[in-house]
Design a protein around this nucleic acid. Sequence first.
RNA 1: GGGUCGGUUGCAGAGCGGUCUAAUGCACUUGACUGUAAAUCAAGCGUCUCCGGACUUCGCAGGUUCGAAUCCUGCCCGGCCCA
Length: 451
Amino acid sequence: MFKVKKNKKNTMRFGKINTRHGVINTPFFMPDATRGFIKTLSNSDLDNLKMGPMVVNTYHLYLQPGLKKIKKAALLRDATARQARLCDATARQARLCDATARQARLCDATARQARLCDATARQGGIHNFMNWKGSLLSDSGGFQIFSLIHQNPQMGKITDKQVAFKSPIDGSKHILTPEKSIQIQFDLGVDMMVTLDDCPPNDCKKKDLDKAVERTIGWAKRCAIEYDKRVKSQKSKVPSRAPHSGSGKSYKRPLIFAVIQGGTDLGLRKKCFEGLEEVAPKNGWDGFGFGARPVDSKGNFLEEVLKYTANLIPKDKIRFALGVGTPEDIVRCARMGWDMFDCVIPTREGRHGRLFSWKRNPNAKAQMSNQIQMPKLKCLSFYNTINIVNSKFSTDFSPINKDSKLKELREYSKAYLHHLFKLKEPLGQRLATLNNLEFYSDLMERLREEG
RNA sequence: GGGUCGGUUGCAGAGCGGUCUAAUGCACUUGACUGUAAAUCAAGCGUCUCCGGACUUCGCAGGUUCGAAUCCUGCCCGGCCCA
């Protein structure tokens, strides 16, 4: 499922990941569509951006809208598709008759739409619900344990057995177990999934860190058992000509990633990795994730820990640097041999008015490549950020990005974007999000080209 | 013309003898954001500063008082009511 080719220049890798929704070239970045959408964007935007895989979140989707609705949406779409096939037939019949030709054309359109529905319906729960045809990875909810419970103990309780937590939406009580996390991820029907892990703060006590590692391994073991069980039952359920297995192909299992915790303690990272290897599912882990924040409490990038952890992971396994990061951190990590990344930075900071752009230098490409060769990368020498809300942009009538492949970003001015932000018009957030995601995908493209 | 209520730091709007540079909201300025409880959060927002403070402000001018945005008098301006 993962083929990797070593880069001659440095320890960066070029690979291909084969998922149920297409092949992904590594290294790559996934934006976070946590609750089933990239905030402010529609699928048309994502198509225009030629967006690759995205990340959804087990915890958030489980709470809202809930699995029942996601499954129901899938069934309803199926029904629409069936109806569409009917329309298709009607359309054929209608074409026979000149008088009803107009009606037929209408039917035709419906049928076209229906065929689309049909195609989507084959793609399982969350794909179907989101109407998204690309690959999706679901995060397990481990990070929510960190951000909700570790930071606010009154929000829930973590034990070896389970995580009991209160929904921030309505205060209702829920239990998440490793098994349940895997079950939900299967129900979502994602292409890649992550084991439930205990993600403590980076500055926690040694004792708590030990506990988190031990728990992460224990939970991974339960995830692996549940995973194998589900793969087996899915295989038996899916006949060879089943819709989402394609034409006669056998069931393709989702990829599964375990998460290496251990904070900044290299020994613990190693221990965690070894522990995870021992409890792997039948086919082994497809990859390993880097657990915890990639920066310390002061915002310093954990270079050594990331490098060390990357080297722990066997070369034929996918390396997923969760939550990485800034453009320079991604470049650094990719050069250490990390293959995939996800982060809220481009989307969140875009919504908050921060725009990423390449330096306006005709040789920017060459310059950047020089910069990444530097042992100490100075990111600021190859890209810029601006805060569009700053008053100086109120009269800057230059394009948001004159080099963008998106018409809107080439034609709207910074002054106009500033105006949209000042008036809190969502269009502004959308344009900024588009700008930043284009920047990130451009970054990854350059990285894949240049190494 | 008479009566009445009122004029507060960009705006709205508290305060109604000392704890008042004066609440709060908005606006404004600048930061932050790394597996999204985030269209969020933080700081600043009279002048100067050796960052400890110093000085100046509540329509204007006087006055009472140890002390006034707060009380009194006059003036200016506005709303409403009556003529």
